[in-house]
Write a protein that binds this DNA or RNA. Sequence first.
DNA 1: TAGATTGTTAATCGATTAACAATC
DNA 2: TAGATTGTTAATCGATTAACAATC
Lengths: 206, 206
Amino acid sequence: MDKIPEPTIERLFCYYRCLEKEKNSLGQSHICSNLLGEKVGIKPALLRRDLSFLGHMGQKGKGYNRFLLKKALAQFIGLDQGWEIALIGAGNLGKALIKYDKFKEMGLFIKNIFENDLNKIGREIGGYIVQNVKDLKETIENKEIKIVIVATDDKDIKDVTSQLKQTNIRAVWNLSSENLDLGDDIIIIKEDLCCSLGSILCKINK
Amino acid sequence: MDKIPEPTIERLFCYYRCLEKEKNSLGQSHICSNLLGEKVGIKPALLRRDLSFLGHMGQKGKGYNRFLLKKALAQFIGLDQGWEIALIGAGNLGKALIKYDKFKEMGLFIKNIFENDLNKIGREIGGYIVQNVKDLKETIENKEIKIVIVATDDKDIKDVTSQLKQTNIRAVWNLSSENLDLGDDIIIIKEDLCCSLGSILCKINK
DNA sequence: TAGATTGTTAATCGATTAACAATC
DNA sequence: TAGATTGTTAATCGATTAACAATC
């Protein structure tokens, strides 16, 4: 099969959420690309192309079965199982993520929180005890954690990188402003809040 | 001049920050695209192309003057002035943004916080009093605010949209999962944390 | 002068769009 | 059958890359 374009992957979750949001509203069993596209702000042709990566989900003349499409999307994305996630950095942003209910609704649970600040280690946030970042590698290995969120910006980042390299994690969501060099086997998604806000400024200025 | 590509705009701030971070480390007065590119993880050819939108900033055989480049970037992006920003939603994410020191370092100040939750209105966060979202339009007009951050997800979003439409704001950073329909004149940057984490899952699954 | 490095061009790559045959 | 809608193709658009002439 063709390689799935990067932007398609990001849109698939939006389709899923849109269907999930409406699951309780009675209505048609099927939805067409025109309508679903309008709801999520994507042109119908692109939507159909995106969904075609899941196989032939639609019925010509009828549209997509909401229930089956949602199920297929959940499975394709990986939302049909729970994920235990580790978080590095219990600052303001980290704390917000721990308490973010929407992640829990998605089956994503931040159960392991790491810090290098001795004042924070041992405290409880959102029901979990903040651990020493020195134990990062060991905990990830013991709990077989596959996803790590980096929300810290201190100089400690070198140590974090070297510990992560020794584990079997699959992906990192990097919310720090540093570039993590973890090799080609680990998926890294970088999301830089300063950069986003900076680009807004720039657009206003043009 | 050519239209600046969207991705270029997002990278310009990264270049700026990289130079800013090193301002105190003594070193060469100039930096070449190879070195700067390596630091920020961008190929030198692309970096040069990006910078070419600022005019002829470089010197052949020598590279870019760090000081002048940083100054030009700051001006181009709009970091050479302060910006007063309004925030809608004082939940976990909103609070984290208010306290985020890096925004302040960039000259971006969240001084107006709005909520519809009566329990939060009147309270103080980060030195500012949370206001009733009903006063959104009026405050934006009085203070001539140009940038708004949306970090709320409640049903209230329709009211927020209609109020924002009546103002002269230039840009919205939409951190909610809703699509805001504010017409073509207002720049909207949507950043959806669930969607980002969802796409990470999907990539692991492939 | 020889070496280094820019700024720009043309080639390439990748994503979106418009159109439509297939078919329910 | 007539109408609706998919899935796919070819055309278009936009961004990146590699190469190199220009020049400090």
